[in-house]
Every structure is written in C-alpha cells, then in structure tokens.
C-alpha cells in the first residue's frame, strides 16, 4: 500500500508518519517530498528539526522552484528580530497567507517536520484544530506530518492520529536498512484498510518494497499443510463415477415420498382435520417423568 500512498496523495488528506527513537521516519518523509515534486506539485516544508541544507540533501532537484522551505530551525521561538518562521505562526490564517503568497494556485502539499516540535510549544487542542482547518481550508491539498510518538503522552498521539486519514508507523526491520511500515488508511466512506509492509529506502529516496513480513506468510502455509486431503491414499473406493452416480440417483429409497405426497402432508388441505390444542395451566405434565403424579 506504501507505493500507492507515495504516488497519489488524495485531496484533503492528512498523512502522519509515526516513528520512534529506534527508527527515524525522516527518510520516508523525504521520499514523500521527492514523490510530490516529481508529480509537479508545489511543496511547502515547515522545517523545525533540521536545517535547510540538511533537508535538501539527497533530494533529486534541491533547487526546484516548487519547493519552498520555511526555515523554522534557526530561530523557532522568535528570539531574533527577523525570524523566518516561528512556532507561534502555526495557525490556519498565517499558514494560508504564507502559502497563497508564494505559490500560484497549484496543488500544494504541506510537509511538517515535525509535529512533535509544534506539540511541545502549542497546546494539542490548538494543533488539532489547525490541522482540521487546513484539511478543510482549501489552500492546502494534503498535509504530511512527522510525529515522534515516544515524545508525547498516548492521548496526544491518539488525538492527532485520530484526525489523520492515513497513519504510517515505521519500526526497524530485522536486517540493516530494512524497516517495517504499518499502514492504516481511512477512506472517505469510513472504510478502514490496514497493511504491513517491509521496505528499503534507496540512495535516491525511492522506496523499494520487500516481500511482506514473513510471519503472515508462514501462518498461511501452516494452515495449508493441515488441510491436506485425508481421502487421498485410501485402500477402498470412496468416489463415484458418472454411471455409478446415475444408478444411485435412480434408486428409490424407502420412506422417501414423492413431491406431491410431501406437499400434501405439509399443507393439509381443507378436507383434512387438525388438532388445535392450547395448553393451559393444568396441563403441564412432563412426558419425560412418568412418576410426576406420585408424591415422592
């Protein structure tokens, strides 16, 4: 499912890459930036955690006109006179203004590196509200955010992920360079899809999907082995040939009635009698117990 997500970010989507200290999701985030640039879409990056140069490193066209990096790394809290972007500017109005100023009505993808940094300084309710407004707002086509899940309380991570249309949880794989992505995608109709994939991020930030994690596969083979046919090696004949089946079907069995007789028995006609019996309180004797009337 990961390649589909990389290829087409649907409108109004909020994708969250959830990572832990054991494996950084930033390479995957960069792959997403690269993929959007390849699709001729404008990308706005709010970079809180690494510098502009580091962010550009490895991108296919680092000086692309459609890539706008808002530097919030050098001065995130506005301590100098001319901060480029501060954490206080993370609001719907400011961001819409910023985006409409610089790009000309193209589909804009907003990349946030990272939401964790914002959540350290802005209350989670405000962050959630802003994300929801941006989703609905129209200036931004899709939002991709990085979230370090082990930096926050479970409830905060849950609330932010609750808003997301797709959540990718990345954890380290068994081999070097390999990582496991657990993907949860919610479609607009409310349907939820889940998938787990092993992937490698190459030098040029493309993503190669390895085979699926093997435990699911091994389970499947187990059940197949168990379901081997017990009738395979028998010393007697259990199957019928066509002629044998015909002969069998011709045979009239005892106590099997014709269709007419069955119908007659099931739907008693107007001439036949019927017993109508409504039990009352005095009638409740038990057929199972023949000594019901005795005082024992």
């Amino acid at each position: 499912m990961l390649p589909e997500l990389l290829q087409s970010t649907d409108a109004g989507g909020l994708l969250i890459i959830r990572d832990f200290a054991s494996f950084s999701g930033r390479h995957l985030l960069k792959s997403f930036i690269n993929a959007s640039l390849n699709r001729n879409e404008a990308v706005h990056v709010l970079g809180f955690e690494i510098s502009k140069e580091e962010l550009k490193h490895g991108l296919k066209e680092p000086n692309n006109q459609r890539l706008h990096i808002h530097d919030a790394f050098s001065d995130p809290l506005g301590w100098t006179d001319h901060p480029a972007f501060t954490v206080q500017q993370f609001s719907f109005e400011e961001l819409t203004h910023l985006i409409t100023q610089t790009s000309q009505h193209k589909p804009v993808n907003l990349v946030i590196d990272s939401l964790s940094w914002i959540l350290r300084h802005v209350s989670p309710t405000v962050v959630c509200k802003t994300l929801q407004q941006l989703k609905k707002g129209g200036a931004v086509r899709s939002i991709i955010g990085l979230l370090h899940a082990d930096m926050h309380q479970n409830g905060t991570v849950g609330s932010v992920c609750h808003l997301a249309t797709s959540v990718i949880t990345v954890t380290p794989g068994t081999k070097r360079d390999e990582a496991v992505a657990k993907i949860t995608k919610r479609s607009k109709s409310g349907k939820v899809m889940q998938d787990e994939e092993m992937f490698i991020i190459n030098e040029d930030l493309t993503v190669t999907i390895q085979n699926k994690p093997n435990h699911a596969g091994s389970k499947r083979t187990d059940s197949e082995e168990q379901e081997s046919d017990p009738t395979a090696n028998l010393t007697f004949n259990l199957r019928l040939s066509d002629t044998e089946r015909e002969a069998k079907e011709k045979l009239a069995l005892p106590f099997v009635f014709s269709k007419e007789k069955k119908t007659a028995l099931l739907h008693s006609g107007p001439g036949s009698g019927r017993i109508l019996y409504e039990p009352d309180a005095n009638d409740n004797y038990d057929q199972e117990d023949p000594d019901d009337d005795l005082d024992v």
Binding site: S123, P124, T125, K129, Q132, G155, T156, H162, L163
Partner: peptide, 13 residues
C-alpha cells in the same frame, strides 16, 4: 470531548 471541541480530555493524562 475530542480535541476539536477544544477539550484536552483526550490529549493529556
């Protein structure tokens, strides 16, 4: 009670 109602019930312990 969700964060969008302005409630931090779900956000903090």
């Amino acid at each position: 009670g969700s964060a969008l109602w302005g409630d931090d019930l779900t956000c903090h312990d």
